[in-house]
Design a protein around this nucleic acid. Structure first.
Lengths: 310, 310
DNA sequence: CGGTATCTCTGACTGAGTCAACTATCTATC
DNA sequence: GATAGATAGTTGACTCAGTCAGAGATACCG
């Protein structure tokens, strides 16, 4: 139950933050809230009081007093905004910048002490996990098509293709380890010997992690290319990633002179079939078979690349 | 710079928690701290006041007053501890349990609203990332040997072997994609056809994620087994995982009647070599070769399984 | 037994944050 | 251009979460 996970995490992280703040001298002679205001000012140097209020969700009266204190201490200057004389433009003085830097330094030290307890080899995992939490929780904006990029595979990506194909089809359709072997065989053949002009793999990447793939290789038949291993991570379906991958294969195959593009799939993979249909593939044969521990119906699809190429 | 990442995350998560707590009615008629106490009581029903103080790092006087309030409201009962009459045993009443449940429910709702903004398919990633942050930051206790378990591969694990072998050796030694192809070939051969009585793969798992692997297959020579693809994630080295994996292979090979265990490695892999030496392997041949885009020196090692088997 | 530490409680206090009232100004509408 | 309503900022008054110090009771240690 994820709600429980989140609550557990909240309790945990409340303690982490509490532990960091515990030695209150961190902010001396200011408070946590005051230092947040100072931080905000240091990182967007000219802001109106109203912006600060909105950004940090502070009480207007509270903020007003904090700014009074800062002004007395010579950390800020307040001038009326030209645009709207009700608003007050707040600017850090040189001294304010110094103080902000000092507080930042202390915070860095304290966080550094925390970080020192994490083995260096694990730190990238920590950064990565924190980024994941942030992006998933921050306003939950759905990823956009433009965030997805297609690229060539790097080290480990072929293994990723094997792992994700196996794990997903095991989870969704109960296929057994034979399928993982088949995929491993396909990527092994590809890695071992392929003509980069005629055969290629694409990885779809979203925010730095792979979320899809497809492969284009030569088929036995002359001037025929074969599309294989089309996969899109469930969490990112509906972004047109499958379409883009298939388009990449079609354009590539046509561009290097193949006349036909074929593929083999199974009738249970409805989402993939719709993609193929959209791109003009036609079903040319269908045959039941027993594979991967299931009774399946294999399908051969074909696309004529010499036809009405745009 | 990871310190900055953490601080950014702290600022972010301060806001998340603040947003959740903002509607203070969440805890009405109690405060956040009071509800934390209640939560703690509900989850370890008989505790002394001193335990609560330690667990939640509260001021003794503050806690005393909170418990007074709870007692007045009929949520708890206080009795002197038998073991030490200075201590006070605190127990929730039925009414206390009800109240705790009510508060928990409200918190669940509020967290649920947050969770609702995360697409369902991404929730496992969120849980996973939070767990990672927790385990890495929680007192930085290094993982213990006992936390590592060896198991058979599940769906996707063979792909994981390919991916991690390729990514690690690319990062550490600059090996090219040929190596990924070789590993894929090895796991494909294994997956496609292996006698489970004579050939096997082990995955080392730590906190639910794979951190190491090894494979044992039949060699061409009679009564000879071959150890392949020994790998331990850098972050978890030093926990004896490599030793356990090699031991697993040796015990297995000896147990099913192999007389020899051989392996091929490269001299650059010093850490692995030390493991093999510890287990009694002897170097039988060495030959330079050019593979994976590098000039390497391959080594054949052998262990006589019929010898002084314990 | 005496000295010291620990557990709990209460009184007294601090100060972070809230609320409400007020002024001044902007914006929208008739 | 007059009026109504919203918004920005300020100040006074207040609340109440959390801290600190001291006291009584008891444990632990020599």
């Amino acid at each position: 139950m994820t709600v429980q996970d989140i609550r557990a995490f909240n309790r945990f992280y409340t303690n982490v933050i509490g532990a960091l703040d515990y030695s209150r001298h961190l902010y001396a002679p200011y408070t946590l809230t005051e230092s947040r205001v100072l931080y905000e000012l240091a990182h967007s140097p000219r802001t109106d009081a109203a912006d600060l209020r909105a950004e940090l969700t502070l009480d207007a009266g509270y903020l007003s007093r904090i700014l009074n204190k800062f002004e007395q201490d010579g950390l800020i200057e307040r001038t009326p905004s030209r645009r709207d004389p009700r608003r007050r433009r707040v600017t850090l003085t040189a001294r304010g910048r110094e103080t902000a830097a000092l507080l930042a330094e202390r915070a860095d030290e304290s966080v550094g002490a925390l970080l020192a307890t994490v083995p260096p080899a694990e730190r990238p995992r920590l950064s990565e996990a924190m980024r994941t939490v942030r992006t998933l929780l921050s306003d939950g904006r759905p990823p956009r098509r433009e965030d997805v990029v297609l690229r060539e595979p790097g080290p480990g990506d072929l293994g990723w293709i094997v792992a994700r194909n196996a794990a997903l089809y095991a989870a969704e359709y109960g296929w057994n380890a034979d399928y993982e072997g088949l995929v491993a065989r396909i990527v092994a053949d590809f890695a071992e010997d392929h003509d980069p002009h005629l055969e290629r793999v694409w990885i779809a990447e979203l925010d730095g992690r792979p979320v899809g793939c497809v492969m284009c290789v030569r088929d036995d038949a002359p001037a025929t290319a074969r599309l294989r291993l089309l996969l899109v991570e469930p969490g990112t379906r509906g972004l047109g990633i499958g379409d883009r991958l298939v388009t990449a294969v079609i354009d590539f195959a046509r561009g290097v002179g193949y006349r036909d593009l074929v593929l083999w799939t199974n009738d249970v993979l409805a989402a993939a079939r719709r993609i193929y249909q959209r791109h003009g593939f036609v079903l040319v044969a269908e045959k039941p078979h027993r594979s991967f521990g299931k009774d399946l119906t294999g399908q051969d699809w074909r696309l004529d690349l010499t036809g009405t190429g745009e």
